[in-house]
């Protein structure tokens, strides 16, 4: 098992290299001249050719492409993503706090999503075709088809304005988490519990369930075995939900005024703040690779057959 983890981690290193390279190229392929953008962002009135050359030198843009990449990549390892074109401050000093704010929101949401999906999936699978199953699926279908900004607005109106129970926006206390987490969790758990449900139902027909019952095991223990075997697909889905939510909280963050990655990324893109965009893309891509690796490792723990694959 230890060997599997080490090898799995080693495999993700080349992947990370490719990703960082792509991130670097993509930005360099854009039609704008970075030097010009910096000068525009700093509101220099007249941009002369001389000034452009000087700025390129300062930014190291006159060096060969590969040298630029390696210097950038090495700096990234120290979380040094350069300076924002707009504010001139180090990128990480702005991106870092925003990242952790979104990460906190994401982790709480994913915890709720996992618990909710497993609970609903198990209940529905054990009562397949009965009223509980049908109503849970119906309600979840209804809720997931609502756009999240609409759902968020409804929640704010009811819980914050009408009942005055929860803050409308910001992240001042634990209570601020409740509404954004509910909005995110509903849209994901409503889909993910179906994975758990269908995997449980197909496992119910397996021979080991019949044999377990024939051995006199109580239903509780049998359900535990079924659940463990059913979680394989779901584990990957749950793990990948973390980077997906990290990168898609724009709407929720805007509605709830959450000082996170979503709002920052949109702002950076609109102001063409390249180092910021680069760092944002890189951080998310790394998150995808890491959580994908994590899901493989968890799956290998659940399913011993997978350990031989590497």
């Amino acid at each position: 098992m230890g060997r599997y983890i080490v090898r799995r981690l080693l495999i993700s290193i080349p992947l990370l290299l490719v990703i960082s390279f792509l991130t670097f190229i993509l930005i360099n392929l854009s039609p704008h001249d970075p030097a010009e953008l910096v000068l525009q962002a700093q509101e220099v009135p007249v941009i002369t050719e001389e000034l452009l050359v000087q700025t390129r030198e300062e930014l190291g843009l006159d060096q060969p492409f590969l040298v630029q990449y390696i210097e950038w990549a090495v700096a990234c390892l120290r979380l040094d993503f350069g300076e924002s074109y707009v504010t001139g401050k180090p990128v990480w000093s702005i991106l870092g706090p925003a990242f952790f704010n979104t990460l906190k929101l994401t982790l709480v949401s994913v915890a709720v999503i996992v618990l909710l999906s497993i609970a609903l999936g198990v209940i529905c699978a054990l009562r397949e075709g009965r009223l509980v199953d049908k109503s849970v699926r119906g309600i979840s279908f209804f809720l997931t088809s609502m756009p999240s900004y609409w759902l968020a607005a409804l929640m704010i109106w009811y819980f914050s304005v009408k009942l005055d129970l929860l803050p409308t926006s910001g992240m001042d206390s634990l209570a601020s988490y409740v509404l954004p987490v509910i909005v995110i969790a509903i849209s994901y758990a409503g889909i993910y519990f179906r994975f758990v449900r269908s995997a449980m139902i197909s496992n119910l027909n397996e021979d080991y369930v019949l044999y377990g019952r024939a051995c006199g095991l109580p239903e509780k223990k049998i359900t535990k075995h079924i659940l463990k075997n059913s979680l394989q697909v779901s584990v990957s889905v749950f793990c990948m939900a973390i980077p997906i939510i990290l990168g898609s909280t724009v709407v929720v963050e805007n509605v709830f005024a959450w000082p996170g990655l979503g709002s920052l990324s949109v702002k950076s893109i609109l102001s063409r703040d390249f180092p910021m965009i680069q760092a944002y893309v890189l951080v998310l891509a790394v998150a995808f690779v890491l959580f994908n690796t994590l899901s493989d490792i968890i799956n290998a723990v659940i399913n011993p057959k997978l350990r031989n694959d590497l």
């Binding site: 021979d207 080991y208 044999y211 024939a214 051995c215 075995h225 075997n229 011993p304």
Partner: peptide
């Protein structure tokens, strides 16, 4: 009453 099944490969929880 004890039962013995046809397919031993599938009679035990594969993850245990």
């Amino acid at each position: 009453l004890c039962m013995i099944l046809q397919n031993g490969m599938r009679a035990f929880d594969p993850s245990c």
